[in-house]
């Protein structure tokens, strides 16, 4: 089973990298870009298990290590089809 953890800065936390990406896209002529945020994706390969139990464990991993919840929020996606 694969779990994908998306970690990004919380709304309201200044994201200088995202801001720089947006202004660089503007410089390239993509005037429609109003804002950008940058985060990371962490893909975990896990033993198969009950999705609810697996998600609860991944949530613990996020709280303990994968995200710094002072500045970051996270979202978990489970993909049971993938081995």
């Amino acid at each position: 089973m694969i779990a994908r953890v998306y970690v990004g800065l919380k709304p309201g936390v200044l994201d200088p990298q995202g801001r720089t990406i947006a202004s660089s896209l503007n410089d390239l002529g993509f005037d429609e870009v109003q804002d950008a945020t940058q985060g990371k994706v962490i893909e975990l390969t896990l033993e198969n298990g009950e999705p609810e139990a697996v998600e609860a464990r991944v949530k613990q991993m996020c709280e303990k290590l994968l995200a710094n919840t002072v500045i970051e929020s996270y979202r978990i996606e489970l993909d049971e089809a993938e081995e």
Binding site: V13, L14, P16, Q17, T20, N68, V70, I71
Partner: peptide, 17 residues
């Protein structure tokens, strides 16, 4: 120390990158 929760807050990338 902030990551360990021994001090509050967090240190982020410098604003000017």
């Amino acid at each position: 120390l902030t990551e360990a929760g021994m001090l509050p807050g967090a240190l982020m990338r410098n604003a000017n990158q």
